[in-house]
Amino acid sequence: MREGLVSFKGINGGIYINIKDGEFNTILKELENKLEKSIDFFKDAKIIGIKGDSITKEEKNELLNVIKYKYELNITEDLESHFKEDIFEGIEEGMTRFINSTIRSGQVVEYEGNIVIIGDVNPGALIKARGNIVILGSLKGVAHAGVDGNTQAFIAAYDLRPTQLRICSIISRKPDGNMDFIGIPEVARVYNKEIIIEPYLPRK
């Protein structure tokens, strides 16, 4: 029997149940085992919902019923709004990290808000932000903005020639062939689930 399909994860003052891909009966057995083992803990816990990308609606309901009626636990089912709360919203005004140096191949810069780099980002470097990424220099590495779900996050650079751009879960790579410096700063944003690159101001 495969263990580990059912796990409990904390989020903003509550717990949700995370279900991985697997056979439903195994999942059900595992959930019941875990609930029984720590029933006292779960009686007091605030269970917010069930998250499982591979279970069907009916299966989800069956699990919910087991939790509510067999084990008599409280479950509020407002998982969606909790997840929304976790996404970084400060892309117009929010916490920002400033770095004044070149980021080299193999280095990773991560931050829970926006990132501004005054310097170049060399190929092989990775910048990850929950918010926006602004590079006052050449972006030749990989930049990943809106890491936890904010599709409005943008990536801007003085010289935008990245190996790859990622906003949220959308990935885009530069066109094949050598790109020369365009000459003006550019901004990458998501429109219609695609990453589009525009000049930094509309009329440039």
Binding site: R104, S105, G106, Q107, N122, P123, G124
Partner: peptide, 12 residues
């Protein structure tokens, strides 16, 4: 040059 860049970062 790629490798040199990596090494410079490591030296730092």
């Amino acid at each position: 040059v790629r490798d040199a860049d990596r090494v410079i970062g490591l030296l730092e």
